[in-house]
């Protein structure tokens, strides 16, 4: 199983690619809705990409209230 740090790094990499922002502009504790300027539908597109990348299923109700990359990575880590 990969480390939580590696999961977090990959989440940040994927978010940067998905929303076309420089990777170095994203930090683990950023509110991704605000930082990326995305709405809930766009957040679901990120969720889809994360599920594919990590080969997991992450029910979106587990994402309720999650808005920072670190917590998102923690939720993913529990499914790896």
């Amino acid at each position: 199983m990969q480390t939580q740090q590696k999961t977090l790094d990959e989440v940040l990499d994927l978010a940067a690619v998905q929303f076309k922002v420089p990777r170095q502009s994203l930090s683990p504790d950023d509110d991704f809705f605000k930082k990326l300027g995305i709405d809930s539908l766009q957040a679901l597109s990120l969720l889809t990409r994360l599920e594919q990348h990590f080969n997991i299923e992450l029910p979106d109700y587990e994402m309720q209230g999650v808005s920072d990359f670190r917590t998102l990575a923690e939720r993913i880590q529990t499914r790896l």
Binding site: D39, D60, Q64
Partner: peptide, 8 residues
């Protein structure tokens, strides 16, 4: 005004 109105 929630950023996640589509999430159940």
């Amino acid at each position: 005004a929630n950023a996640q109105p589509y999430l159940p």
